[in-house]
């Protein structure tokens, strides 16, 4: 009697089952992310303006050339870079501060922990509307800002005129502040989990070795959080570059072009100018920039041997 070797059968089906299980997800993502991305690239090589639907033709990299030569693009890119850089930095600092607080044990910690999720639960566009109110003419924060400018003027004998959201500087940084506020909880959750994973013996050992509390943070907490900081940096970089709904609701890109972040610029290109070719070239550039940044971060993760395949 010949006995079928079952392991032989298994090895063929072994790869089939996991692939089958991944199939629904892969199909969805291929259909609604990979395919559109491909189309997006193809369209970016065309002249394609909805205002002239009869004049759709291939013209290679012309859209890219136009964009790279336009001051609008460079303005949007710099604003987005500034926006993203500040957002990543502030989110990491504030989220870390709150995570360290939540790691301490004190009465009422549960309350703080519950309140932590409030900003996260608020939809981006509602967040924008909310900050419109806060920073608008009658807004509570607007009054506070105006008062503090007055105090600064008085103390230092300066003559700063506070114009609220009409000032490009205020508008851009207010947008960053609102964006950061909403992004802090997610980052904080990640930091908190990472802090709680640090073995307490490490702190005891450092205490025995005579490390001050700053040194314990510097030489134990921070190295242990390296992975978490990178993860947050990846997420927040992506979020920074795609910030749209907040801008839409809070500033509408203004005043002037002060808050024309690149996602907003793309949206305008597509649906205000109806230039689909140009807008796709824009969106392709954003994708390339975020992907490049993501690859850099992921390489950093790999180099530290912190990502397992």
């Amino acid at each position: 009697m010949t006995v079928l070797n079952p392991s032989h059968l298994m090895s063929r089906t072994r790869d089939a089952l996991p692939l089958l299980l991944n199939l629904p997800a892969v199909i969805l993502l291929l259909a609604f992310i990979a395919y559109p991305i491909g189309i997006s690239f193809w369209m970016s090589l065309h002249r394609y303006n909805l205002r002239r639907p009869d004049q759709v033709y291939f013209h290679g990299l012309d859209n890219y050339a136009t964009i790279l030569a336009s001051s609008e693009f460079w303005n949007a890119l710099w604003i987005s870079l500034y926006f993203t850089f500040m957002a990543v930095l502030l989110v990491i600092v504030i989220a870390m501060a709150i995570a360290l607080l939540l790691h301490e044990s004190f009465r009422g910690r549960g309350v703080v922990r519950a309140l932590l999720l409030i900003p996260w639960a608020i939809p981006g566009v509602v967040n924008g509307l909310m900050w419109v109110g806060l920073l608008g003419d009658y807004g509570a924060f607007n009054a506070m800002l105006a008062d503090s400018v007055a105090v600064v003027n008085y103390l230092f004998g300066l003559d700063i005129v506070y114009t609220g959201m009409a000032s490009p500087f205020v508008a851009l940084n207010a947008a960053i502040g609102a964006h950061v506020w909403r992004s802090v909880p997610f980052a904080c959750i990640i930091f908190l989990a990472a802090i709680q994973a640090i073995p307490t013996e490490q702190y005891r050992a450092a205490r025995v070795d005579g490390a001050t509390s700053w040194n314990r943070f510097r030489f134990i907490t921070l190295p242990w959080l390296y992975h978490a900081v990178l993860v947050v940096a990846i997420f927040e970089t992506m979020n920074g570059f795609r910030a749209f709904d907040l801008i839409y609701a809070l500033t509408g890109g203004g005043p002037g072009d002060a808050t024309h972040v690149i996602a907003w610029q793309t949206y305008k290109e597509a649906f205000a100018r109806l230039d689909f070719g140009g807008a796709n070239a824009y969106s392709y550039l954003i994708t390339v920039i975020t992907m490049t940044l993501a690859v850099i971060y992921i390489r950093l993760l790999y180099r530290r041997g912190l990502v397992q395949g």
Binding site: V3, L4, N5, P6, S7, M10
Partner: peptide, 17 residues
């Protein structure tokens, strides 16, 4: 685990598969 080669028997029952 399934063996790469060989058999497992319980009494007179080949349970390998």
């Amino acid at each position: 685990e399934s063996p790469t080669a060989g058999e497992v028997w319980f009494d007179d029952w080949n349970v390998t598969a």
